[in-house]
Write a protein that binds this DNA or RNA. Structure first.
Lengths: 211, 211
DNA sequence: CCGGCCATCCGACCAGAGTCGGAGTTGGTT
DNA sequence: AACCAACTCCGACTCTGGTCGGATGGCCGG
């Protein structure tokens, strides 16, 4: 190992697919001005590795086993408020993006973009800037004020997205069917859906719920 | 470029994510007994590249823009029945797997497995064998005879999965609501669902429909 | 040629879903 | 204290969704 890492952008890579990690590392380590310091597919180990290496930038996938990438970002930022994050993920709806930005991500790159998008994002963020591809910022702009659901509504929505009936949801939450119907009505309004099936579909599209 | 490619397993890589292609190529080209001959993210170009290089094995993602990976496999096999395919994709339900095996894929590797799974699969397939990870063959074994839908039912299901009502589906297909209800009932039976929302959820899980 | 599968259609029935309007509780904000 | 938002509940009404039984014509394989 050479000792020429002075001045290089030091990157921690977090993605649950080993193959993707190899690809990212290959791209980054091929550039003279950046290098990877560690990689993992596990959110908890990511937190440990961050403490250990204190990288300039953490490259983070959002969909991870156990803990989500957003939670990992929040956890790290609690102790290191100046930590820099670039999200690298397949496009999975505006909600994930919104959450990630909210949690403090400074850039958002979609897998499937050319390599330059990734390295560009890293350089810009390291220089103190941001990087949001046009399709992403467009999606974000379309969020209306009441696309936010209350925590109870998210709870109901996730049960809806499992194909449960109102009665089952009522049992599960220990409330009456009438109340469930109220929540469902509000959800339909917020998602601009006309029935529960449509609500589930758009929730999955936007990343408000997962399979 | 050295001329030591004699005897190596020659691989064509097809995946729509540039980063993943880099990762795969890095892994394969690091082994002494295999090499990549070309790569692309486009199914149609994949067909051209196959004709041009006649690789020993084509490593194929199923989810591609425009044409699906399964269709690409079928197209190539029409003219080259002895062509070898290894599917490399994120797990997206048993239906994709079934279709791919049906179309002639000899191995199925899930992104997120360690590198060795990939190289193992390539070597085994090149030796004339097969490679199906336990979770995959388990999922395949659970297919009951009547989990197959007729083409009309698939048509209805994909409209269901868009959140359309029976009336809308009837309009779309130029049939009556009564007939749509019949199809929906059959679909519910086949998917072992009790209502349309559940049917949509399990269809998405199993890869019978997509967002 | 006939049985079976598929797609089509019908009518009637029941249960679930969704709407509307009204109303009480809590907890946090101003 | 006044207020607002979220959560809770109720009843009654409408309409979609789903089931059941029965029926037709086309198409394919034995």
């Amino acid at each position: 190992m050479s000792e020429d890492h002075l001045g290089k952008i030091r990157v921690l890579v977090v993605d649950d697919h080993p193959i993707v990690r190899v690809g990212i590392a290959a791209i980054i380590d091929a550039r003279p001005d950046m290098m990877t310091v560690a990689q993992t597919g596990d959110a908890e180990e990511a937190i440990r590795l961050f403490e250990q290496h204190l990288p300039d930038i953490t490259l983070m996938d959002l969909r991870l086993p156990k803990m989500s990438g957003v939670e990992a970002i929040r956890a790290i930022r609690l102790r290191h408020p100046k930590a820099c994050f670039v999200v690298l993920t397949t496009y999975e709806g505006d909600e994930d993006i919104y959450q990630a930005i909210e949690a403090g991500a400074r850039a958002y790159v979609i897998k499937g973009m050319p390599h330059e998008a990734l390295t560009d994002a890293l350089r810009r963020v390291h220089a103190g800037g941001r990087f949001l591809p046009p399709p992403i910022s467009r999606a974000l702009a379309q969020r209306t004020p009441d696309s936010d659901l209350t925590s109870r509504e998210r709870e109901v929505l996730s049960l809806l997205a499992q194909g449960r009936t109102n009665k089952e949801i009522a049992m599960e939450l220990g409330i009456t069917v009438a109340t469930v119907k109220c929540h469902v009505s509000v959800i339909l309004m917020r998602l601009q859906a006309t029935d529960r099936t449509q609500a589930v579909v758009t929730a999955l599209q936007r990343g408000l719920a997962h399979l």
